[in-house]
Design a protein around this nucleic acid. Structure first.
Length: 817
RNA sequence: GCCGAAGUGGCGGAAUUGGUAGACGCGCUGGACUCAAAAUCCAGUGGGGCUCAAACCUCGUGCCGGUUCGAGUCCGGCCUUCGGUACCA
């Protein structure tokens, strides 16, 4: 009979739900395992292949852990706020709340059909007041601690989303991370979270977590720590000073000019009147460029002279002050001392504008390059001469500090996290703006500031909340006079920075989350999600977690101990997207083959972290495996009712077929263990297929050996194809379901030892013979067996034997001449 | 440009610390079953050579070179693809 997956998958899903098999007892923390996938963003009503690829295999891992005796917590929820729902509202008039709720309901049904062991009691959605209330509370704690502040600053403005973006949310081609349209610079007053206060700790923490190296590297580069010095330069003929940051203070004697960012506040003041027009023109030309254009490495250097001079503090010489777009106001101090001798960009600039070049590090003989960046003895540097870079740095910093014109500094590339959004569908910022009191935090007992339902969504660039007067007009909670609420909402990355803590009790009213549970259950043991979150979500969550630790709400340093990225499933070589029209709908395959086959096929396709191009070519192979498995168990129906299998068998008591199967069962147990532990699902599935092939002759075994093998087969199958495995287990006549009463079988180590082995004989490195012999026999005996072989003889007779290498139980290599 | 990963049959992909390259699956070929087809089952399947056939020989893991008794795996130099990043002072 063909495996009736519709019926059986529905049956077991119902069973699991009714028996509450996946309800995790969070009070039992004995062998806890928090297995988390990135929650779902319900912008569309459908689950696509990428979701399946993320959730299916991760669920298999969670199930494996459960069978191994872990108390596994595997929750699912909805990252429900965000722009797409709001843009959809603008287009169709359907309110974001309504479309989101509908999407969530549809998605929940689809996720359930997948058959994952989510604890649905832990389900949460970020758009509910009972969730976002705590975003607001978090905001207030950050505010109290000086980590949430408002400033007027140039910000990234997405021309299509009509909102500001954090720097991380601008892609490297200058487009918006969400919608891919152009991002421009604007000056606005916005709320920021001071993530830079945690820069050092965010770096340190990377050493303590089990994350992919490339992800850690990305965070490392994003934070971009560099050691150097700040040096004050006097502006010649004035009292002004310009502070520069440099990583190479040792090259100070070679600083032959200075460059300011065009936006630098001193530019207007410094510029000589006859050059004002040129400088203004240059500044205007920069305004039109995005930050990305400006920072293109291929672009030729541009800049203009201001007419002013600074004084090099070590040489006391006047050096010209230029402005150029390659100096950014947003990094360091917005000003540099240019040392063309030791910096490629400065060299290029100096060459183009005929500025002096002085080498202060001696390049090796024969050096033909331009700027010399390597280590070497200092030259042309007075009291530094002869010192190598590190020593020269130390000495000059001492000197600068002694003179009171500079100091050792650490600079970071990381900037504060801009969290204001001029959008509706998000968490209202809990601040009241009062004419007399300024910014006033909403008192905690008045939270949540509920997001009103009725607003005007018109995408005119203003915050939609501003259109709701009832919402906007409040009394100042300090002085009681008329005041206004903040009309902006928070970046949705705030929501996702702590949701894993809320899952533990999403209805908790005593605080942001239940600290007792959080201390017991976090860090999350295994976190699985896309690599596209390497710097944004994963950095924000680490920051927030550390802050929550500092205010004593959690006791761990890091939110996610082990991180796994699933690869991307592409179609026809491109990422699946509606606009490309290459989206593959998983439902089609669920209908035709069922959820188990589909998830197993996704796992079988290849290495989990590599992903790959979609093809349905091989899915029939997995389907055949499922059919053959099912019929094997049907043939042996009720076997467990009449028989009992021992934990172990003595190989000597088994016939050849039994021995073969017994060995393979144990070998597979071992293999599956290792493969699943490392998220190598493809080889785990292959191992089970091999076992099934071996079990072809199961009918030649005693019933108890049949049962021994089938029991183990079902349990190994259970993480990968849970519905099928439950069905097989119950076909055997087992009373308790696998996941109701999780078990995992121990390996019989004796079955893993071979008694005979094939020795490969190589002659001059080429395989010439394969000889079977008993395992672990002594080398002289091996040698005599090898040289007794006709083929070996034919290759060695009459030749001089130069060398013999024996690798026990593997290879016998003979070198002849 | 820089950083990282990858490149293995017709295809997806296997291969402990260097030790039988191609597990497992798809596809294909042949056979069984069938009136026939589908499904299923059995056998074969990297290329080339020599064979009735087997045995056997030979070439083969992106390219060139090296280390080694032995290299998909290690080293040096390239090429291609895919991610990440972009003048960070």
């Amino acid at each position: 009979m063909k495996y009736p997956f519709q019926e059986i998958e529905a049956k077991w899903q119902k069973f699991w739900e009714e028996k509450q098999v996946y309800k995790t007892d969070l009070t039992n923390t004995d062998k806890k395992h928090y297995c988390l996938v990135m929650f779902i963003y319900p912008s569309g009503a459908k689950m696509h292949i990428g979701h399946w690829y993320n959730y299916g295999p991760t669920d298999s891992y969670a199930r494996y852990k459960k069978l191994k005796g872990f108390n596994v917590f595997e929750p699912m929820g909805y990252d429900a706020f965000g722009l797409p729902a709001e843009n959809y509202a603008i287009k169709t008039g359907i309110h974001p709340h309504d479309s989101t709720m509908k999407n969530i309901n549809d998605i929940r049904e689809m996720v359930k059909r997948m058959g994952a062991m989510y604890d649905w009691d832990a389900e949460l959605m970020t758009c509910e007041p009972k969730y976002y209330k705590w975003n607001q509370w978090l905001f207030l704690q950050l505010y109290k601690n000086g980590l949430a502040y408002r400033k007027n600053a140039p910000v990234n403005w997405c021309t299509s989303c009509h909102t500001v973006l954090a720097r991380e949310q601008v892609l490297n081609d200058g487009t918006c991370e969400r919608c891919n349209s152009t991002v421009i610079q604007k000056n606005l007053t916005q709320w920021f979270f001071k993530i830079t206060d945690y820069a050092e700790e965010l770096l340190d923490g990377l050493n303590k977590i089990d994350w992919p190296e490339k992800t850690k590297t990305m965070q490392l580069n994003w934070i971009g720590k560099s050691l150097g010095a700040e040096v004050d330069f006097k502006v010649s003929g004035t009292d002004d000073q310009i502070k520069v940051f440099t990583t190479r203070p040792d090259t100070l004697f070679g600083a032959t000019y200075m460059v300011l960012a065009p936006e630098h506040p001193l530019v207007d003041k410094l510029t000589a009147s006859e050059l004002k027009q040129k400088v203004e023109e240059y500044k205007d030309s920069i305004k039109l460029m995005t930050e990305i254009d400006r920072t293109s490495t291929v672009k030729e250097k541009t800049g203009v002279f201001t007419g002013a001079y600074a004084i090099n503090p070590v040489t006391n010489k006047n050096i010209p002050i230029w402005i150029a777009d390659y100096v950014l106001m947003t990094y360091g101090t917005g000003a540099i001392m240019a040392v063309p001798g030791q910096d490629e960009r400065d060299w290029e600039f100096a060459e183009k504008f005929n500025l002096p070049i002085i080498r202060t590090v001696q390049p090796p003989e024969g050096f033909e390059g331009k700027a010399f960046l390597e280590d070497g003895p200092a030259i042309n540097s007075d009291f530094l001469n002869g010192l190598y870079v590190d020593d020269a740095k130390k000495k000059i910093i001492e000197w600068l500090e002694h003179q009171g014109i500079g100091k050792h500094t650490i600079n970071y590339r990381l900037r504060d996290w801009l969290i204001s959004r001029q959008r509706y569908w998000g968490t209202p910022i809990p601040i009241i703006h009062c004419d007399s009191c300024g910014e006033v935090p909403v008192p905690e007992e008045q939270l949540p500031v509920v997001l009103p339902y009725h607003v005007n969504f018109k995408p005119d660039g203003g915050s939609p909340l501003a259109s709701n007067e009832e919402f906007m007009n409040v009394k100042c909670s300090k002085c009681g006079t008329d005041a206004k609420r903040d009309a902006d909402t928070m970046d949705t990355f705030v929501d996702s920075s702590w949701y894993y803590l809320r899952y533990l009790n999403p209805d908790y009213e005593g605080g942001m989350f239940d600290t007792k549970l959080a201390n017991a259950w976090t860090s999350v043991d295994t976190y699985v999600g896309g690599a596209e979150h390497a710097v944004m979500h994963l950095l924000y969550a680490r920051f927030i977690h550390k802050f929550l630790r500092d205010i004593k709400l959690v006791n761990s340093d890091e939110p996610f101990q082990k991180l796994i990225h699933q690869g991307t499933i592409t179609n026809l070589g491109a990422k699946m997207s509606k606009s490309k029209g290459n989206v593959v709908d998983p439902n089609q395959f669920i209908h035709e083959y069922g959820s188990d086959v589909f998830r197993m096929y996704l796992m079988f396709m290849g290495p989990y972290d590599l992903g790959g191009d979609w093809s349905d070519k091989g899915i029939v192979g997995v389907d055949r495996f499922v059919q053959r498995t099912y019929s094997m168990f049907e043939t042996n129906k009720d076997l467990a009712k009449k028989n009992k299998a021992f934990e172990k068998y003595d190989l000597a008591q088994l016939n050849d077929v039994e021995k073969g199967i017994y060995r393979k069962v144990n070998y597979t147990l071992d293999k599956i263990n290792v493969e699943l532990e490392h998220f190598r699902f493809n080889t785990a599935v292959a191992a089970l297929m091999e076992l099934l092939n071996e079990m072809k002759n199961l009918n030649e075994c005693k019933p108890e050996i049949q049962l021994y093998s089938l029991e183990r087969f079902s349990i190994m199958l259970a993480p990968l194809a849970p519905h099928l495995a439950e069905e097989c287990w119950s076909l055997l006549g087992k009373e308790k379901s696998i996941f109701e009463n999780p078990i995992w079988f121990e390996i019989d180590p004796i079955a893993l030892t071979q008694d005979s082995i094939t020795i490969v004989v190589q002659i001059n490195g080429k395989v010439r013979a394969k000889i079977d012999m008993a395992v672990d026999i002594q080398e002289p005996e091996v040698k005599s067996l090898v040289f007794a072989d006709d083929k070996v003889k034919s290759y060695t007779d009459g030749k001089q034997i130069v060398k013999e290498i024996y690798v026990p139980n593997k290879i016998y290599n003979i070198v002849v001449r």
